[in-house]
């Protein structure tokens, strides 16, 4: 079907550019409750995502650009779907932009072989480990766990000659540890996503979060307070809500360093200027965004537009160096 879509796109004369992605997914899920395994699921999917660009003429006579996206499932009619995408692209009048051309794609390790070969066995093993680890700690119990082993293969071809493929695995795991007895329970909820099982460090994390549940037995409400606050470790990205894929919200850093926000006048940060509105003391802020980190949670070889993975310096010594941008907003 992929080849038929590409052939149909090549035959069209009304498009300025196009990109097609085939995304194949396999997922194995395990859900646990105190009495055992609540659910076991296997999910398979295959879809084709087509994005087209059209050159239009605005009512004022200027040359403009519009885009349209459609998704096809195996067996669906290609022609009508492409017509819909082209129609969407013909309706709007934005400044012109293009799509990335072929360029070297970096090798970024993204696959856990064990998770890819035997996902169900891997999840059962993790569930056993989790129960054992929590069972060894006095005063806490495991009451829920969810695990999702995911494999995704993407092939991307575009009208400028790019043809690339990548496979990645990920393991999402979450669990609940409860301390205390009836009416006095305290809990910790933990969730991680990693590309490799080995990066979970399950035994250490189990102990750490079990201790939090126990500590909460002693904790009281926080007092009203204004003054210095220390953030460290995983709390930093959580505080800034950097992970929009989880919360659905963009945090301050993601939005203010985003070219789309700058373009839409929602970020007042300026290149070459301090990101702080007032004088600040202490260590200067330096911030990178990278998709090249081996087995990184958000690493990949290329993104949805086909742009190769990069490591980008966003802020150096409090000064904004770059915005994060896709092709459209970069142009």
């Amino acid at each position: 079907m992929f080849d038929s879509i590409v052939k149909s796109l090549k035959a069209r004369k009304d498009l300025k550019a196009w990109t097609v992605r085939q995304v194949d997914t396999k997922s194995t899920q395990l859900y646990a409750v105190p009495s055992g395994v609540e659910a076991v699921r296997q999910v398979v999917g295959e879809r084709y995502i087509v994005e087209v660009l059209r050159e239009n003429r605005s009512p004022e006579g200027e040359i403009t650009c519009g885009s349209g996206i459609v998704t096809l499932l195996p067996g669906e009619d290609i022609g009508p779907a492409l017509d819909t995408a082209a129609l969407m692209a013909s309706l709007v009048h934005n400044p012109t932009y293009g799509i990335p051309g072929p360029s070297p794609i970096p090798e970024v390790p993204l696959v856990d072989g064990q998770l890819q070969r035997e996902p169900h066995a891997a999840l059962e093993d993790l569930h056993t480990q989790l129960r054992q680890s929590v069972g060894e700690i006095a005063g806490v119990r495991l009451t829920a766990a969810e695990m999702d082993a995911h494999e995704e293969t993407t092939r991307l071809v575009n009208s400028r000659g790019m043809d690339a493929e990548q496979t990645l695995t990920s393991l999402a795991i979450e669990w609940v540890t409860i301390a205390g007895t009836r009416g006095q329970e305290t809990e910790t909820f933990i969730e991680f996503t990693r590309r490799r099982i080995g990066d979970l460090a399950l035994a250490q994390q189990t102990k750490r979060f079990a201790q939090y549940a126990l500590d909460l037995q002693q904790a009281g409400p926080a007092p009203s307070y204004t003054g210095p606050v220390m953030l460290r470790g995983a709390l930093m990205p959580a505080f800034f809500e950097c992970d929009a894929t989880k919360t659905g919200r963009l945090g301050a850093l993601q939005s203010l360093t985003g070219a789309v926000f700058k373009y839409n006048q929602m970020s007042n940060w300026e290149l070459g200027k301090s990101v702080f509105r007032v004088d600040v003391t202490g260590d200067p802020l330096t911030l990178y965004a990278t998709r090249c980190l081996p087995f990184g949670q958000y690493s990949n070889r290329f993104d949805e537009e086909g742009l190769p993975a990069q490591r980008v310096l966003l802020i150096k010594d409090n000064v904004l160096q770059n915005f994060t941008a896709n092709q459209r907003y970069a142009e």
């Binding site: 999910v43 999917g45 879809r47 995502i49 519009g66 885009s67 349209g68 996206i69 459609v70 998704t71 499932l73 819909t84 995408a85 969407m88 692209a89 309706l91 709007v92 009048h93 934005n94 400044p95 373009y263 839409n264 006048q265």
Partner: peptide, 16 residues
């Protein structure tokens, strides 16, 4: 639709 641009898009559907 905003002051700088317009978009008309289909969000990837889920069917199964």
């Amino acid at each position: 639709v905003d002051n700088r641009e317009e978009r008309v898009i289909e969000i990837p559907p889920s069917m199964g």
